[in-house]
Amino acid sequence: MAYDPADLKLPGWLLRVLDLLIAIRIPLGRGWRLGFTRPGFVFFSALVGLWAAALYSGNNLLYLSGAMITAISVAALLQTRHILKSFPDPASMLPQLQQGDVTIVRREGELLFPAAAVVAIQWCYDDGDFSLLGRCEAGRLSLQGRIQAQRRGLYRCNSLRLSSAAPLGLFLLELQRGDSGEIVVMPEPVSWQAEGLNASAASNELRFGGDEWHDLRLYTPGDALSQVHWRKASGELSDWRVKRFAFDAAQRPESVLRVDLRMPAHAEAAAFERLLGRVWFWVLEQRGDSTLFLGQEQFAVTASMQSGALQRAIAAAVPETSPAAGDGGLLLAVSDER
């Protein structure tokens, strides 16, 4: 915005007072709040002075001037209200985010009306918020900003706070909208190869659930007791091991991944995140028809990727108490992280 009382070289204390005043938001009800910009506060003060002069003197031309300036203010507020009320849901325009990465958002959309406005978007979730700018210009909306999500998850929007000083830059109108959109933040993909476990190689070798003994893994509550290697077990639950057998089937086991979402005792949360990172890596690697058992849920990878259901499931995954559903295929579990 190109005009500001600071340009008039006002004394510093006056500007500080102005800054205090423009921080005030006046609740108007139904989620609307009104504030002022610096020039807006000067404008409003002038308007109050003008009305005081008009009411005191009864000079009808001062009434007319006051009514004209008030009409400008009312029209500006109505236009801002119109812009904010019809502002589209920004969540539907946001890209898929990844944990820890800074995502530069530049998305274009359509507006139902022509406007020249910049709307500040504050997308609030449980313990934080994302901030973006929406530029409305000539019937187009462009979302701009940088978003960095520190953790994986399904960020459900508690409230969407939109604010704009358009069209005149005098009044700041704020709308808190109870949107129920969500932003999906995926885990950072963990390459299996990076840990010496090439995905394609693993898909040929790791075929659990068959008859041939393969290795031992940590016991996870819910494992069948018949599979516990009792001779290596001690009194400590964390020392228990479970026998794994390689799958020996003729079908394409690499097209099935079963993810066991149970958390072994004393396992760290980071291990669970790494597990999901591996799962996400595996999903991204898939090109054909594949099936993913994420805990108890089953997903046809291609279809559910298209609908976004799989991403939401991975982003929202939490430790479970039941073993992975389904039979055959590759089995990933937190205990593999050791």
Binding site: M1, A2, Y3, P114, A115, A116, A117, V118, L133, R135, C136, E137, A138, S142, Q144, A165, A166, P167, L168, G169, L170
Partner: peptide, 17 residues
């Protein structure tokens, strides 16, 4: 006022309505 509002934004000036 609308013209002055529309200039000097990040990403360039807004076109006038």
């Amino acid at each position: 006022a609308a013209c002055l509002y529309s200039i000097n934004w990040p990403g360039g000036d807004l076109p006038a309505v």
